[in-house]
């Protein structure tokens, strides 16, 4: 296995819903290597998004540890977690979440601006990334002028432009038709290969599973299987 990027050690997450406790994750342990291209699959309520939240530093586990390159996220302050996300994580959402008043170019530029970089320093990098996702002719268009597939390409470029170690993609093809879904997945696979950023999908979409190299199935907050495309399979 490649060098470990993320380590989950007996991670549990319990939410209080009214007077009841709801266990979203129950003792999940797994490792994610650098450059991984994998997905969390499972029915609604199985804990996929909770797992993305914990890995993305958006939430903290009730018990267990989430380690990023050996550093325990539990020990980080809110500010440090924000810096962790800023420096290391790219996000792709089901509904794209592009900023409507900005152009394609500006949407891709946005995370770099948040990271404190000046536009003049990164203009070429942003333009190259837009070209890379096939939107050269749309670079000055606003999101409202783009198709769903094009919007998701912008979101991919936005996630990748800061050269993160990890991209968390929550249902990225859920709003796309088949053709656009395949194009987006193909693009993500190419970029994963080129940029070496690990990509973790959370998805119901079976089309995604054809592209990924590892599939972690969650059921009732537990890993029910962890299947690698190289043939190895761990069923729990």
């Amino acid at each position: 296995m490649s060098e470990t990027l993320i380590t989950l050690e007996r991670v549990s997450k319990v939410y209080q819903v009214g007077e009841e406790n709801f266990t979203a994750l129950n003792g999940v342990s797994l490792e994610v290597g650098k450059g991984a291209f994998m997905s969390f699959v499972g029915p609604s309520g199985s804990g996929k998004t909770t797992l993305l939240n914990l890995i993305g530093g958006l939430d903290r586990p009730t018990s267990g540890s989430v380690l990023f390159q050996g550093a325990n996220l539990e020990n980080m302050s809110r500010e440090q977690l924000a810096a962790y996300r800023r420096d290391n994580i790219g996000f792709i959402f089901q509904t794209y979440n592009l900023l409507p008043v900005y152009s394609v170019y500006e949407n891709v530029l946005f995370p770099l601006i948040l990271n404190g970089l000046k536009e003049s320093q990164v203009r070429e990098r942003v333009e190259n990334m837009v070209v890379k996702v096939g939107l050269k002719d749309q670079i000055n268009k606003k999101p409202a002028q783009l198709s769903g597939g094009q919007c998701q390409r912008v979101a991919i470029a936005r996630a990748l432009v800061k050269d993160p170690l990890l991209i968390l993609a929550d249902e990225p093809t859920a709003n796309l038709d088949s053709e656009n879904s395949y194009q987006v997945l193909e693009l993500m696979r190419e970029l994963n290969h080129e940029y070496k950023a690990a990509v973790i999908f959370s998805t119901h979409d079976e089309k995604v599973t054809r592209y990924i190299r590892r599939e972690v199935r969650l059921e009732d907050g537990k890993v029910s299987w962890d299947k690698h495309r190289n043939g190895s399979e761990i069923e729990t």
């Binding site: 993305g56 958006l58 924000a82 962790y84 996300r85 979440n97 900023l99 946005f110 948040l114």
Partner: peptide, 14 residues
């Protein structure tokens, strides 16, 4: 709302 959420998710402190 979306922009604020996005900025928080992308690591901008509150």
């Amino acid at each position: 709302y979306g922009e604020m959420g996005l900025r928080l998710a992308f690591g901008e402190p509150h």
